[in-house]
Amino acid sequence: MVPLGQVVQLEKIEPLQGYKLRIVQEVVLALLAKQASHGYQLQARLALALGPLGGALNAGHIYVTLGRLEKADLVRARRVDQAGRPDRKVYELTAAGRERVHEWLSDTSWPKPAPAEFHLKLVAAAAAGLADPVRLIDKQRGELLVGLREAQRAALAEPAGSVAGLLLEGVVLRLQADLRWLEECARYWNAAKG
């Protein structure tokens, strides 16, 4: 929805082990909005917010991202002399960066919902007689339940009041919603079969 040609291009050039850089970029920008920060400070904030999901996001990711943002003129780095610190750079937002943060926060686009593709898959499978839709649903359900199990365990392992727990709760609830929808699909395709 928001034209971000430059950023998308960056992602294409250097994928970072599966993490959606767009999100990391926006978050890093937003975290710098209040005050300038060191890279390691940013990384700590992100790790706290993601909890068990932030495991793969190491300091390297942050610096690569900051580097790109600097090239795109969204942040600028200042050198600060600090004894005993490997990191001497403090990053702060440029005017363009500040504008981007505002744009991001006011953007209400929502991640693409799942049903359409699977729904069409079921319709097509039934029409072509290639596969039993009910079997497909059962398989899918198993897949989702294994995911739910993982997410739930991770959520249960979070201490009470953890901010990352909230993210996991979101994952669990979405999976639940998907599973309920699968149940409806099963009911429909079962009836269609019989």
Partner: peptide, 8 residues
């Protein structure tokens, strides 16, 4: 999990 959460 990170994929399920939309991070990947």
């Amino acid at each position: 999990l990170s994929a399920m959460a939309g991070l990947e």
